[in-house]
């Protein structure tokens, strides 16, 4: 599950102002120190046991040769050295990185265009907003199956292309190394457009209408209004969506899994980072230590993505 906190362009108070009574109303009545912890027990238990503990365990096993059946010995950096010589790891890294490079610009721009086309109170626009959002609530598996049907050798897309004489033989959307990757990217965009569109809609609603009116007075057309009013007004949202969509793109799994029928493409050439972790880390033959090392690399790379985006955000704020 991708998760995201959507900021308001208006500042939102995240914490109440300290009340005049000093430490707040709450402090005076619960005399027992453990009362707050009772409220926190379920959350701390689940998050502690199923997120923090596995994370620490990943840190530990990444430096061992442990397998699914045998807890291993400490081997230092050996797993990481192996990664560099593993063609599948290099392939997965290339595929996931390409995913970010291609998908993110589309996800930052296209939903913005879409959002600015369907803003407004009218009923018909409400209908289109809902329609454009619908793919977001579908699971990647179902969407993957739909597009498997459409992109197959005898699927609708190939039938249409041949009927229109664009191509003479069916295109190998689901078997060719690069076509498959681009097909999966297309499917990712297809599923995700509506999500980012709604985030943009919230940002667009915060742009002062009088700015558009003023631009209109100056004789600006739709395109110039978009460039000079809309774009500056949603700049921080664009950065946020850049962050969210790059993290999501690097983590891609479901679409590629279903389009390749779980194989990762011919010879595993369409594996992504998450698929590689899934393959290396499960099953009786699984080399969990090695999978842990891949996980750790992925963690660091995602952390790097976040750092870059935060740095951009700060740079923009300084301006």
């Amino acid at each position: 599950m991708t998760t995201a906190v959507v900021p308001h362009d208006r500042p939102v108070r995240s914490r109440p102002e300290p009340s005049r009574s000093g430490r707040g109303a709450a402090s005076r009545t619960h005399s027992r120190w453990f009362v707050p912890w009772l409220f926190l027990v379920p959350a701390l238990a689940v998050v502690g046991v199923f997120i923090v503990l596995p994370f620490l365990n990943t840190l530990a096993i990444a430096f061992t040769d442990s397998t699914m059946l045998v807890p291993g010995q400490f081997v230092g950096l050996e797993n990481f050295g192996r990664l560099l010589d593993d063609p599948r790891f290099v392939t997965a890294l290339v595929n996931s990185s390409l995913y970010v490079v291609v998908v993110v610009p589309v996800m930052v721009l296209l939903p913005l265009v879409l959002a600015s086309l369907v803003t407004g109170q009218s009923r018909i626009m409400g209908f289109f907003r809902t329609a454009f959002y619908l793919p977001v609530v579908m699971s990647a598996v179902i969407v993957g199956l739909i597009w498997t049907n459409l992109l197959g050798k005898q699927g609708l897309v190939n039938e249409l292309l041949q009927w229109l004489n664009v191509v003479s033989a069916p295109l190998p959307f689901l078997t060719d190394r690069w076509l498959l990757l681009f097909s999966a990217m297309f499917v990712t965009v297809w599923m995700g457009l509506g999500y980012y569109m709604v985030i943009y809609l919230a940002a667009l609603a915060n742009i002062d209408d009088s700015l558009y009116d003023a631009a209109a007075m100056d004789g600006a057309g739709a395109v110039r209004k978009f460039l000079h009013v809309t774009l500056p007004g949603v700049r921080s949202t664009m950065l946020l969506i850049g962050l969210l969509s790059s993290i999501a793109a690097f983590r891609v799994f479901g679409e590629v899994y279903v389009l390749t029928n779980g194989t990762g493409g011919v010879g595993g050439r369409n594996l992504t980072m998450t698929m590689l972790i899934q393959r290396e880390g499960t099953g009786l033959q699984a080399q969990t230590g090695y999978a842990g090392a891949i996980s750790l690399v992925m963690f660091v790379l995602l952390g790097g993505l976040i750092a870059v985006q935060l740095w951009l955000q700060r740079k923009q704020a300084d301006r």
Binding site: P54, T58, I61, I247, I277, G281, A286, G292, S295, L302
Partner: peptide, 11 residues
């Protein structure tokens, strides 16, 4: 923490 990076340990 992205869930993919801890999923093997979770399993």
């Amino acid at each position: 923490v992205p869930v993919e990076t801890v999923i093997v340990s979770q399993f």
